[in-house]
């Protein structure tokens, strides 16, 4: 049980779930696990089953698209950020590759487990989505800025 208490504290301290109600946190802990991924290792690959999402405790993860002959990095996520929302959207498949740039420690949440609890407990469902939506909005805005090619040559 020590491990579960630890996970509860980690979830509490991570910016993503900061301030969450104790009862809901308890539900989250039931689906959570500690993970580590070594530098260069993949957390997941494009097209794979999105059966988890992650909170980064330390380290950094790059989101990549693999093309024949090269890999294009599209975003980097670091300590305090959340990785992955494909688990929320059918057919639950990863959109990008996620690779550790260094030794990275994370908390993972089992998607099937959490989706089930969210279906059963609308309060938990709302709380999780309420925290995901601003992150999605921010990343969409940031991606659009990248599209602008701010520093590129003038037309």
């Amino acid at each position: 049980m020590v491990q579960i208490e630890d996970l509860g504290r980690i979830i509490d301290e991570h910016p993503f779930f900061q301030g969450i109600d104790g009862k809901l946190r308890g539900l989250l802990v039931g689906c959570a696990a500690n993970e580590r991924v070594d530098a260069g290792q993949y957390l997941f690959r494009q097209g794979g089953h999105a059966d988890k999402f992650y909170l980064i405790r330390a380290g950094s993860i790059s989101l990549e698209i693999h093309a024949p002959g090269r890999t294009i990095m599209v975003d980097t996520l670091t300590e305090g950020e959340v990785v992955g929302w494909s688990w929320l959207v059918e057919p639950y498949r990863w959109t990008f590759d996620a690779r550790a740039q260094e030794l990275t420690r994370l908390v993972s949440f089992d998607a099937k487990c959490l989706r089930g609890k969210m279906e059963a407990d609308a309060e938990l469902g709302y709380e999780v989505l309420r925290r995901f939506v601003p992150v999605m909005g921010h990343r969409l805005a940031a991606t659009r800025l990248q599209l602008v090619d701010l520093y590129g040559p003038a037309e």
Binding site: R70, T71, I72, M73, D75, T78, A142, Q146
Partner: peptide, 12 residues
């Protein structure tokens, strides 16, 4: 804003 796999720094 964009990088290939050789880049060990941040993208975004």
């Amino acid at each position: 804003d964009r990088a290939t796999g050789q880049w060990a720094g941040r993208v975004g």
